[in-house]
Design a protein around this nucleic acid. Sequence first.
DNA 1: TTGTATGCGTTATCAC
DNA 2: GTGATAACGCATACAA
Lengths: 342, 342
Amino acid sequence: MKLGQATIKDIAKALNVSASTVSRALKDYPGISNETKKKVKELAEHLNYRPNAVALSLRKSKSNTIGVIIPEVVHFFFSTVISGIEEVAFANGYNVVLCQTNEKFARELSSIETMLDNQIDGLLISYSKETEDFNHFQKLIDLNFPIVFFDRVPEIPNTVNVIVNDFQGAYDATKHLIDQGYKNFAHLAGPKNLTISKKRMEGYKEALEDHKIDINPEWMFHCPEGSKEESIRIIKTLYQKGGELPDAIFASNDIAAAGAMVALKDLGYQIPAQVGVVGFSNWQFCSMIDPPLSTIAQPGFKMGEIATSLLLTCIAEKDTSNKEGKTVILDTELLIRQSSQK
Amino acid sequence: MKLGQATIKDIAKALNVSASTVSRALKDYPGISNETKKKVKELAEHLNYRPNAVALSLRKSKSNTIGVIIPEVVHFFFSTVISGIEEVAFANGYNVVLCQTNEKFARELSSIETMLDNQIDGLLISYSKETEDFNHFQKLIDLNFPIVFFDRVPEIPNTVNVIVNDFQGAYDATKHLIDQGYKNFAHLAGPKNLTISKKRMEGYKEALEDHKIDINPEWMFHCPEGSKEESIRIIKTLYQKGGELPDAIFASNDIAAAGAMVALKDLGYQIPAQVGVVGFSNWQFCSMIDPPLSTIAQPGFKMGEIATSLLLTCIAEKDTSNKEGKTVILDTELLIRQSSQK
DNA sequence: TTGTATGCGTTATCAC
DNA sequence: GTGATAACGCATACAA
């Protein structure tokens, strides 16, 4: 009895019945006398019997485990999503194995391999910033393997995705700045290969166009890192040049926005009086910094919940060859704080 | 060939050899002709053969998986620890299954059960705020099951733990406030049943005693939630009473400290001129809020790395009945920002 | 009502 | 050099 783990065999031996009888008794199968049922259950209880999930996986070719791959746990938004995932998985008897890629493509590949080796029943994934080739996903999809993408979704057909309405969020943020009376707009954009970056930029552009405001391409900055330091650098360089300068900044993530604020304050600019700033994601710090940062809230927990529900459905319907894609789009919410109220 | 997963049997059949031959060929066992080795390996490559980890677990009674139980992923410190854990686990061929308890005791119990059912090789755990009874841990320890506690460690003998020097960190923080010339000290303490709370309070007290400063018991507040709102409530209530008031606050976590700052600013107090504040943990937002919050940095990533290394050692030495406990204590670092510089 | 045989994928232990 | 068999823990088709 290693590790106190009693097996069906142990029970069978002790009771002088066969293993199958024990197995059936434990699951209330018909055709087992109440007496043996009782005996078996009592002993099982007494020995603290718990079925070996590994053996079950092998037997049933089902692990009741889903894999989750995300870029970084430390990212507030993703940690929120994880909570949502865990909640639904747990409630449905599923385990969660987690890998973070640290935004590395190689890590993404190897994580998926390992998870498949471990016979996960399905995969939830938000891919890395380095990922530009989607073959590894395509293979899984071709095999009809249950997979749901969230937040960062690949541009391949017939996938199941959960995203937020990045376009609308960016549009709302930009429109809000316009409504506040700001005139000259700059945008700190995310990594080029992420759809979310593109959508946010499109939302930004469309809001400006709808209000007949010129888009200055020199005031669009790509921030591959997405770090505070990066945007401090960018904003300082821009504002130190002098000449005509933006009085409103929409950043595609809060960290970049916070960096911009640091840079602006360093240079002596008043926020929001002279420059307005809006971010994206609603990290915890947004309400704590000075001035509090207006931003677009994303429903991370909900995204996790929905993605997991969809995945469980995919798993359940795996054999019904229903290969249609589907994309759930969640609404964002504009949170107006001081950084953008002129 | 479901899901494209070829098995050893498939290879054996295709090559007209036995499964054992294939198994041996793949692992370069002695006594296999180079020719068959080559044939087997080529076909394996071609079929993209990958060993079924579940079958291996069952066969070897070893899953190469470790369980990690933490209170909350959204907690910045814990997410840092996770990164450290993943790094070391990954580098050593281990998988990580993750459960968060959301600070619930019941959830902690059921998570452990499920993980054990899944035959994890070892457990890394930081228990919930609700956990006051350690029997579930004691059972595992009695069975010699590999388990390492981090950050929040139980008061039971012969456990393996990784913690930070909470006492010293709190002492440093308090001494720093004293050195800055603050006179009247208040403390926002953590949940009573956590050792870290006690240690931090002890460090706080000892620093005051060492400098012959009176400890006002009415200015020690327990913050079971650890939320911003909670400390706003506490601080507002305190300062609105009037009379003699503290001019320095040491909070046992950054969120509470940030809440205190919000409350103080609302009431019109100048930080750090009138009141100094120091937190604990060094969340990301500390450097972004106004004024930037002085705090005690904890090496979360390193904690994760060390805890995992220790666990892997425990797993390796499981049979050598070396039941000695061990506690690794990591140094903290005082980060002096504006909130405490008079 | 219960037992026997078989298989999930792999490998260790014999045997030839 | 290679193959047959058993075993890890469990569930189930088939017998009895």
